[in-house]
Design a protein around this nucleic acid. Structure first.
Length: 1127
RNA sequence: GGGCUUGUAGCUCAGGUGGUUAGAGCGCUACACUGAUAAUGUAGAGGUCCGUGGUUCGAGUCCACGCAGGCCCA
């Protein structure tokens, strides 16, 4: 049995790992074992936020799923049992729109051209259209989740759990029916979702008639409040005005430009330019003749908006009176939405047709202006076709006639549409919109101060292209505001990553919570389980199929019906057909709405287990509730995060999740959003196919924190693959090559730590440091910190330092304790790295782990994912050693830099280097790693120079933090000045004395050695270099002996190259022939024959005159023919 | 308009509690190394730390106001 050795590129290997390890997991049920091998009483609860499978997955899904997977795997390594149930979100508008598009129908056709039953069947099929692709990607990127038994939101059982939850809310009086102002398309006869409103091209620039209307203050002669509107058709339903409390208003005396009547007008001071623009001029500037045609004005009063609050005014167009709360109508209120950006700074309020308006109305009990229809039900002044009701239309028709307004056709009471929904010919010279007609009437009645065209953007229906109407619609709400404080308090117990999303984005949202509008007027979704009598006085909320069966039976009996008591499908239209009976014996019909799909997903903690009808103990005994961990995109803050939190809070008075990672967006390499239009979409399948799954996962995690946006670049991915996986693989290959030759199988006892080399103990200390660091990072849900720590360890510590320095130990000499220690140390590093990195790169690390463990059998685990997380070993941690090694690295780097400067190749040995002895500790540290420094730099001796030699220039500067702590901040300038002028001799004197006195403000102060930092700066007359306060000087005298030794090393190097070029095996013995031509080279070869032969495994070395025609190689400054042959 | 967030080298990113020479990797330039070799090492060039004010002996770091990008909401 030998360790696998790999020749292929790192990319090939990544792909290979992705395929082979996946197959291995499947064949050996590793996922299942990773769950079942952990004790059931140590659960770590994870919730999978259900994706919708009606579209293909994107690269950002790889990101989201990687994050989820990492922590589940980590917790498994830590010994937790992590069950992961998959799930699918199946209801909702996107599915419906997709089906409509496929069938070429609109919402109006449903129930006409296609039955609801058939339509919903289409939705049911469409929603799982791409399930196979999703499953494939999930599997290929190694996201371990149970795909065999997922929860599916359209299942009857799932719906039944949702109903149960709704019933709990209903019982707590948290479910109610109310009004909400929603975008509505009269032309299409349907409400519009925000999704539909966000369709491109929906918002258009239009020119509307805007009016500054004059609202006469009650009891005054001619004081008027000016309110501006771009929708004059809403003026007949005006019931209030809003002002800004802190805005400054003025009263201005002038004349109305249309009627010439004197008026005192009130509006925001900042809006004078707009209100009085054009035809008006300040009376002080008025010059007769020069300003003919202009109307003079004068400001008579100035006051804050607060003073206007409560003021009463006369109804502007008194066609109809409000039917309730009349005492609150036609008054001035404060509105936080009032600005001085446009209009007059006073806002016209019509609670029926504006969201702000409705809110203000609700808060202050201001009535909406409604009119009774033929059934006595109160309705808005405009019907759903966009037409004024007769009560208004009659008046408008009369006034049109009275003022002789010319129109393109005679207008009756039923002809006043608020926008041109009937397709009238607008090019007709006498065509006038209802807005214009209302404006003319206002002008005639001295109620309009200014009328003009106003260009703005306004939303239009994406299907009919007609303007949208904001219209009051009946809706069901969850009274979330009732428990707002509790929801806020519960949120504070949740650990959010990043924290700001929890306190800011989510916390603020909770603080400003409004009731959750649950109603959706659609077909494919969870039906609202509420049945009502026609007059709405009696209702029932059904909480289970059993309850429904009982109620149906009751209805059948009381109403003499023949309804089946159980439904095969709880969707529309089947539930719609169910008639129930009220307590008083009246028939009850289901409220036709569906519920918001977000309720479905928010219900998953319970509904995925069909709670409480099955598995009740899972929730009741808190076995799977609340979740320990969830993760989704930050865009889910008001989506899934909110609904999970709200349902748990309202129904169970609990949080739904303890830790949540909200992930950022995946953008293209330039930071743009990926979109089909820009053609910058990264295909996840192709990417994983090309680079293998681990590189993609690793890159996403190591490159940026999960909650930051990720600029996804394929170059960056390739770089990360080379850097991390390439280096790790090289290191493993190195190990495997020699371990196979030496037959190392880790059968021997561990070499005691004390018997291992400095570098062994150093790398083990570093290894322990990252065990600790990664463990903390994972536990803190910060995978990026873990990935970067591992990356730096593998690259800098393990590969570029440990392996490079210790290469010879592996290929030279006997299989002795030292060699064994080297193997054991490197093995330990590799197998530990495999474990630490396995949550992020599950495939490659499993291959690495198994390649190692299959030979040694050290661990009883058939996969790295069944192993346990390494534990920090205090005994192996050695901070002092790590510092020493850092010192060695710095010194080597300095020597290299001098060598480079003086053009002295490393193979040329040098006699000595000198290092200023800054302190006893420093000197000892360097001494302990001196062998290492000497072999790495090829310098024969290290000498320390003390102060006595007077060779070193020293530099001194304040130790700022120390001085600041002593409260000497103010004296810093003086101290700095004093230290700046000190010479080396002064510094040495100070070092000897241990303290000195410095003149400062308010007397002398005494500095100790700890208050300053002293550095060796330079060694005059020597080739030296300085970094991090350490200076190294190099003796660059090249003696003939040294030169010969350098030549000998060159020879070894050339011969080794030759061996390789000739494809000799590492263990082949050779004979060498070197040309005698150059005396110096021949001498060197003779003097160092033993050395050369040992290094190159040569049994013979001849100096020959007979090498004509043999290729020559550059040695020192000579060209020397060399020939080798197998012995 | 509101909430949150980001802005440091050509690119991707580090820079606890303020400490005076702001770092890494990639890329670029040059050199070296060559029994890990489709590797590796060393050095160099490259920064008004988004701007403006303020606090401080001292600000990339703290405060205020802006600017630009992003997300969510109106």
């Amino acid at each position: 049995m030998k360790y696998n050795e790999y020749k292929q590129s790192v990319t090939e290997l990544g792909k290979q790992a992705g395929e082979q390890i996946l197959a291995y997991w499947k064949a050996n049920a590793v996922f299942q074992k990773s769950v079942e091998s952990r004790p059931a009483d140590r659960p770590f609860v994870f919730y999978e936020g259900p994706p919708s499978a009606n579209g293909t997955p994107g690269i950002h899904h790889v990101m989201a799923r990687t994050i989820k997977d990492i922590f589940c795997r980590y917790k498994t390594l830590k010994g937790f049992r992590v069950e992961r149930k998959g799930g699918w979100d199946t209801h909702g508008l996107p599915v419906e729109l997709q089906v409509e598009k496929e069938l070429g129908i609109t919402k109006e056709d449903i129930g006409k051209k296609i039955s609801i039953a058939d339509y919903n069947q289409k939705c049911r099929e469409a929603v799982m259209k791409y399930k196979a692709q999703w499953d494939d990607l999930t599997e290929r990127i190694g996201f371990w989740v149970d795909l065999e038994n997922p929860y599916i939101t359209f299942d009857n059982n799932y719906i039944e759990s949702c109903w149960w939850l709704l019933k709990q809310l209903h019982a707590k009086d948290l479910l109610y029916k109310g009004y909400t102002i929603q975008p509505f398309s009269p032309a299409a006869g349907t409400g519009l979702s925000s999704h539909e409103l966000n369709q491109p091209g929906t918002y258009k620039n239009v020119k509307d008639t805007s009016v500054i209307a004059q609202f006469k203050v009650k009891g005054s002669d001619n004081d008027y409040l000016l309110a501006w509107t771009t929708t004059p058709w809403t003026l007949p339903s005006n019931t209030a005005l809003a002002v800004g409390k802190d805005i400054t208003y003025v009263k201005v005396k002038t004349h109305n430009q249309y009627t010439k009547q004197p008026v005192n007008i009130i509006f925001a001071k900042e809006r004078m330019g707009y209100v009085l623009g054009g035809n008006y001029i300040n009376r002080n500037d008025f010059v007769e003749g020069k300003h003919s045609g202009k109307i003079p004005y004068v400001i008579t009063e100035e006051f804050r908006g607060e003073e206007l609050i409560g003021l009463q005014y006369e109804q502007l167009l008194p066609f109809v009176q409000p039917h309730e709360n009349l005492q609150n109508a036609f008054k001035v209120y404060a509105g936080d939405f009032v600005t001085t950006e446009e209009g007059s700074g006073i806002v016209h309020i019509s609670p029926t047709f504006g969201a702000d308006d409705a809110r203000l109305g609700k808060q202050n009990n201001v009535p909406a202006l409604l009119v009774a229809d033929e059934h006595g039900h109160y309705q808005p002044t405009v019907d759903k076709k966009g037409k004024f009701v007769r009560q208004i239309g009659t008046h408008l028709a009369e006034l049109t006639q009275q003022y002789g307004i010319k129109t393109h056709k005679p207008l009756g009471a039923d002809d006043f549409y608020v926008k041109n929904y009937t397709g009238e010919d607008e090019s007709h010279p006498d065509y006038k919109s209802t807005d214009v007609i209302i404006s003319i009437i206002l002008k005639e009645q001295n109620k309009a101060f200014k009328v003009e065209k106003y260009e703005h953007t306004y939303p239009h229906c994406w299907r009919t292209d007609k303007p949208v109407l904001y219209y009051p619609m009946e809706s069901w709400f969850i009274r979330t505001t009732a428990l707002k404080d509790r929801l806020v308090a519960l949120n504070k117990t949740i650990n959010w990553k990043p924290e700001s999303t929890g306190t800011g984005r989510f916390g603020n949202w909770l603080e400003n919570l409004v009731d959750w509008n649950l109603s959706r007027s659609r077909y494919w979704g969870t039906p609202l389980p509420i049945w009502r009598t026609e007059d709405g006085t009696e209702e029932i909320c059904i909480g289970s199929t059993e309850e429904m069966a009982a109620e149906i039976a009751k209805a059948n009996e009381k109403l003499g019906l023949q309804q089946p008591t159980s439904l095969a499908d709880l969707h529309r239209p089947y539930v719609d057909e169910v008639i129930l009976v009220s307590a008083s014996g009246k028939p009850m019909k289901r409220e036709p709405d569906l519920i918001d799909v977000w309720f479905d997903s928010g219900a998953m903690p319970y509904a995925q287990w069909h709670y409480p009808f099955e598995n009740a103990n899972l929730i009741d005994q808190h076995k799977t509730f609340p979740a320990d961990f969830i993760s989704e995109g930050v865009d889910q803050t008001r989506g899934w995060f909110f609904t999970l939190h709200t349902i748990a809070g309202l129904v169970f008075d609990s949080i739904a999740f303890k830790n949540v990672v909200s992930t950022g967006l995946v953008l293209d390499a330039n930071g743009n959003k990926m979109s089909k239009r820009l053609g910058n979409v990264i295909n996840p399948f192709e990417t994983v196919e090309k680079y293998g799954p681990d590189a993609v996962r690793w890159y996403m995690i190591a490159n940026a924190a999960p909650w930051e946006n990720l600029k996804f670049s394929l170059d960056g991915l390739a770089e990360m693959q080379r850097k991390f996986f390439g280096t790790l693989q090289n290191t493993y290959n190195f190990f495997a090559l020699y371990a196979n030759l030496d037959g190392f199988r880790y059968q021997e006892a561990d070499v005691p730590l004390a018997e291992r080399t400095e570098s062994d103990r150093w790398i083990l200390s570093r290894l322990n440091a990252i065990i600790k660091e990664t463990d903390e990072a994972y536990a803190d849900y910060d995978p990026t910190r873990a990935a970067r720590a591992i990356l730096n360890f593998v690259n800098d510590d393990l590969s570029n330092w440990y392996v490079r320095l210790n290469r010879k130990r592996f290929w030279k000499g006997e299989y002795n304790t030292d060699k064994l220690a080297a193997y054991q140390t490197l093995y330990t590093c590799l197998v530990t790295v495999a474990k630490l990195a396995s949550p992020i790169a599950p495939f490659y690390t499993d291959m690495l782990f198994r390649d190692l463990n299959n030979i040694t059998g050290k661990e009883n685990a058939e996969s790295v994912h069944l192993a346990y997380y390494p534990t920090f070993n205090e005994a192996e941690s050695n901070i002092a050693l790590e510092e020493k090694m850092h010192l060695a690295q710095t010194i080597c780097s300095l020597v290299h830099s001098i060598r480079k400067d003086k053009k002295l190749r490393v193979r040329l040995p040098l006699q000595k280097m000198m290092i200023p002895a800054l302190s006893e500790t420093f000197q000892n540290y360097v001494r302990e790693v001196s062998d290492l420094i000497m072999s790495e730099t090829n310098v024969k001796n290290i000498e320390f120079i003390g102060d006595t030699e007077g060779l070193v220039t020293k530099k001194i500067k304040p130790n700022f933090p120390v001085l600041a702590q002593k409260g000497l901040g103010k004296q810093m300038k003086a101290i700095q000045a004093h230290l700046g002028q000190m010479q080396t001799a002064d510094i040495i004197a100070f070092q000897k004395a241990g303290q000195m006195s410095v003149a400062a403000d308010g007397g002398n102060l005494t500095l100790a050695l700890e208050d300053v930092l002293i550095e060796a700066f330079d060694i005059p007359g020597w080739a030296s270099a300085t970094d991090e306060g350490i200076t190294v000087a190099l003796d660059i005298t090249v003696t003939p002996e040294l030169r010969k030794e350098g030549i000998a090393r060159d020879l070894v190097n050339r011969i080794q190259n030759l061996r390789k070029d000739l494809n000799f095996e590492v263990q082949d013995k050779i004979s060498i022939a070197i040309a005698a031509g150059e005396a110096l080279v021949a001498d060197a070869a003779k003097d160092f024959a033993d050395y050369i032969q040992t290094e190159t495994q040569a049994v013979a070395l001849n100096i020959s005159n007979d090498l004509n025609g043999t290729e020559a190689y550059e040695i020192d400054e000579f060209m020397v023919p060399i020939r080798i042959a197998k012995a």
